[in-house]
Simulated assay, not measured.
Amino acid sequence: MVCDVFHRFSDQFNTFSVGMESMGLDVALITSAADAAGHETQIRSIQDTTILTLRLPQYSTSIRIVKRTFDVILSALALIVSAIVTVPVAIAIKLTDGGPVFYTQQRVGLRGKPFSMIKFRSMVVNADALKAELARQSGQEGRFIFKMKDDPRITPVGKFIRRFSIDELPQFLNVLRGDMSIVGPRPPLPEEHAQYNQIYATRMLVKPGITGPWQVSGRSDLSAEESERLDVAYVQNWSIIGDIVLMLRTVSAVLAQKGAY
């Protein structure tokens, strides 16, 4: 129950409210100063005090079960169907330079929990060691997301699989393990997560996704501010129907190759 009437409209209250509601908890407010837009509301009377409770219905246990079931079934099907593409890609990567087929990288997941994200390797073996120097040369030091066109670390096979997002297909294994969801904000690197402000950190209240608002809205061409706005809005407004729409938009985004580098 929140009784402080002076800071209802602050960023601090907004992030606190979303954090509580995303765990399936209600937030109870004195009715005189509640900003309840976008929340399911209910008026209650407790010990002669009128109270307005807020909740985001999409974070109920039943909806979470539906989303998880949806993730497991679709991921299993995707891994089976995509084998016709992933097997030849794995062979091509191995033949390129003899290095590993898969690339695992630590990312930050639900509520700040780290996990190892799996991708097809699209860069040279020592790509991480070269990142700091390339960021300095391209003026991207300190950016949330480091991306550059014509990245010299990308192999010829890597350019092809990145163009059509084939490198991300192994992430369906992360979905089966429960680290990720099919739809959600992109999983950040630990150094990116460390720079999040209070508002942007709310994106960690849901599982990161293989696809999501960032991937279908321009990807690497988006500014940091645009990425932040999309991810925060997703957390507050997500729904199963919305996830299906984002998946359909992913198909056109992959074909258009906008921001894919």
Rank of each mutant, 00 (worst) to 15 (best):
F146W: 05
R55L: 08
F120N: 00
S227E: 11
A34G: 15
N126C: 03
T49D: 11
P188I: 02
C3S: 10
S181C: 04
I241C: 01
V183L: 04
V108R: 01
Q137K: 13
H7V: 10
R203M: 03
Q58C: 10
G99W: 07
K113E: 14
D179W: 06
E192Y: 12
H193F: 15
L25Y: 14
A36K: 11
L25I: 03
R229D: 01
G139C: 05
Q47K: 10
D128T: 05
V206L: 01
V89N: 01
R163I: 10
I73N: 03
M148A: 01
V18N: 07
S138T: 13
A78D: 04
L176V: 10
F144W: 09
L173Y: 12
L222C: 09
S32Y: 03
L56C: 07
D4Q: 02
I118K: 00
P88T: 06
S165H: 09
I46V: 15
D128M: 05
E133A: 14
G218F: 06
K258P: 02
L56N: 11
R55Q: 14
I182D: 05
I166E: 12
M204V: 04
P114A: 04
A132P: 13
D150E: 12
F160L: 15
I51Y: 11
W214V: 08
R153L: 08
V101P: 13
D26L: 12
V108I: 15
D221A: 15
G139L: 02
R203P: 12
D221I: 14
A129I: 06
L25W: 10
S138L: 02
G112M: 02
Y261G: 00
P156W: 05
V5D: 04
E40G: 08
I154N: 01
H39S: 14
S45R: 13
F115K: 06
I240L: 13
R219G: 00
K159N: 11
Y196W: 05
L230D: 05
T250C: 00
I46G: 03
V206C: 10
I118E: 00
V66F: 14
A260G: 00
Y200C: 04
G218C: 08
L134K: 07
A78M: 12
D4S: 06
E168H: 08
D151S: 08
